[in-house]
Design a protein around this nucleic acid. Sequence first.
RNA 1: GCCGAAGUGGCGGAACAGGCAGACGCGCACGACUCAAAAUCGUGUUCCCUCGGGAGUGUGGGUUCGAUUCCCACCUUCGGCACCA
Length: 833
Amino acid sequence: MKPRVKQTERYDFRTVENRWRPIWEAMDLYAAGNDPGKPDRYILDFFPYPSGDGLSVGHCRNYVPTCVDARFYRMRGYNVLHPMGWDAFGLPAENYAIEHGIHPSESSRRFSDTYRRQMKLVECSYDWSREFSSTDPDYYRWTQWFFLLLFRRGLAYQAFGQQWWCPHCQTILANEQVENGRCWRCDSPVTRKSLKQWFFRITDYADRLLADLDLVEWPERIKAMQRNWIGRSEGTEVVFSIEVDGESHTIPVFTTRPDTLLGVTFLALAPEHPLITDITNADQADEVRDYVSASQRLTEIDRMTADKEKTGVFTGAYAIHPLSGEGIPIWVADYVLPSYGSGAVMGVPAHDERDHAFAQRYGLPIKEVLIPSPDESEDGEKGCFTGKGMMVNSGSYTGLDSTTGAEKITADLEADGQGHATVNYRMRDWLISRQRYWGAPIPIIHCERCGVVPVPEEDLPVRLPEVGDDGQPVDFRPAGDGRSPLARVGWWLNVPCPQCGGPAQRETDTMDGFACSSWYFLRFASPHETDRPFDPDAVARWLPVDAYVGGAEHAVGHLMYSRFWTKVMADAGLIHFTEPFTQLRNQGMVLSPVDGKKMSKSKGNVITPDEVVAEHGTDALRAYLLFLGPFDAEVIWDDRGIVGVNRFLERFWKLAQDVAVQFESPGSTNVEFERVRHQTIRRVTHDMEQFRFNTAVAALMEYVNYLVRSRDAAIPGQQWRTAVETVTLLLAPIAPFITEEVWHEVLGGTDSVHRQSWPVFDESLAADEVVTIVVQVNGKLRDRMEVTSDITDDELRRIALSQPAVQAAIDGSVVENVVVVPGRLVNVVTGAQ
RNA sequence: GCCGAAGUGGCGGAACAGGCAGACGCGCACGACUCAAAAUCGUGUUCCCUCGGGAGUGUGGGUUCGAUUCCCACCUUCGGCACCA
């Protein structure tokens, strides 16, 4: 039998992780710092909506990088606020509750318990003492308080009208929750339903929401989506008038092209337009009625299909053209959107593609009033000219260019009271009413005498009832009639009016979950306040959020609403800033290796952090998620790749064990060894600052490889110790367990590695003494030379020209120029041979 | 159609501020250790080649001593909006 050589133990991640978890918990390592001498930094993840499926590695791609950022800034001497909570109201919890016969509060609790457990599994460094759920009465009390604030400021109102309705979820949806005519949650085609609903007047803030995008550091993509969603459009409102049976009506239309006004040959009203019945000619009444009801039966998908053929029906009525006085036939056409502008458009077939198609189909006249300017090329082939040009066939306006003509026509209309310049937005007001149980009740009481009465602040929160009139747990299933389940709970519903004491009823709709997530970032600053939503001093200290990180899917929902609420609060003097999130970053999605698609339980392609941690450990999962690719790029999870970071962690472990035995050995400092250390600190620090974690991990891999290669070099023990210490500290935010173990077991640390200071580098010590200069001849690489970095340009030029390989490449040609870039290259430029 | 982002080896990706293209990792090949395998370590790995070199960062131009990087045009992919008058 051979003698046994003592081997370094393999790294046993299970033992190490199990040892440190409870110790760290007891140390309260992640509590938000409170040192007045330190700068503050608020690092926040999007408010997650816990689902029954738990977290996938895709979610971790959000939470691990922010955790690393938080750890990095803690080590750099910041007070870091890095909290977590739950956006738990909403349909998934409610549907799960219905399915399993439990209360939604129970399903919400189960979901968030799973999320919290998994987040702790990957050692996300949240300050759990600040955790809350949007479903806590102590929280939604203040959501209701903010509703009343908006109400008092005239920003919450009720309106009756046609709204999106999801027949499966049995609720009204906001515009943002309808995707391609389908419900965002269950994918059912949506229909229209007429109900009285609550709205927030976000359109009042459209201009500020647009302008202030310039103030924030957000991805251009998200800003573009918001701009597009707001859809600001300058134009002119033109008023057409019509007289029917001695009664006069006006039909305002919005146009961005008043220069084409004289080309109008018809008006088109949306089928929902309120004037249709009043103006329709008796001969046409049946046809119009049929068309209107047919278009209402169409699903939104059918109606919105862009390449659908344009249809319509003539009303028999004629409006008077404000400039020419001509009679203009009025049609009903479903390509006109009821909710934009006034729900009516002027038809200019010669200069608008849609109007052109419509006019062609129904044989309406096409009147050309604009020709391309001589200096512009025509964009002909569509059958109509839609560009700007020179006005023709336009009476006194003939000969003007589009821009001047548009201004003049608008001014003339205005003088006659027949129109004016105006601005339209694609954005609509925010519909917040939900006819579901699991949401924050809207704190309003409807009194027969006093009308709409806000619930007095001292009566907040308006709690969700837990038992019905029969004493049994409340039946929270939707009724299917469009009314909220809360309408069935008599004891809760019927209350005396707070103003007159007379009989009154509570509002039975609950708020859209996006209301809850529109202010949660303020609550984290002081989550335990009892008599106000937040402590203004704490908010002034931490807010706005320095780094806000989450998926791109909230570009026009949550991120718009939160900006709106923030501005309202600023206007009310509650806070000192108008934009809630200074810097926003979107992590890239992690696609499943199974099918290259987004992970979802229904597709059965999910990879969970639990399975990865069980097999490779938390450190490996974290390091791999960071190493997979740039933070904001979409990546495919590759099971094979994780062995790479595992090998790296093992190499680090073995290195630390191996060199520990020579920490005491004497010797003089090796300058090169020290230089690489400083260079590594510099690289990793810069990468971390810019969320470039993939290259930070690569830099650490290179450094560990370098140290392994230097094993047998004559490096003094103290320098070895410093090197190992440096890797350990630089790696600590990424791989918290293995570094803590090395910090204690190898380096003899007493306090946690996570409470150490981030290593600093010295620019002069990081500078190379010897540099490799590339020598090119006519831009082609011909030679390299090692020179000291303080060499002069002249010397460089001389040495470069004397190189045999360079001489061979020059081959007798005349040297015309020699470009010298210090520290980098020499390029010899020769003339033709 | 409009808006936004991006195209680099077999794969994920790297390249400061216009200066060595392919860092780091996966995979693969060969070698060492082993009875053997795994693990580990070492070497190699853009393509072509007559072994001198040559070509090469989606395509075609341009600016420059020099372009993955800047400019123009185009192609492709992804994401968003999509009859918004």
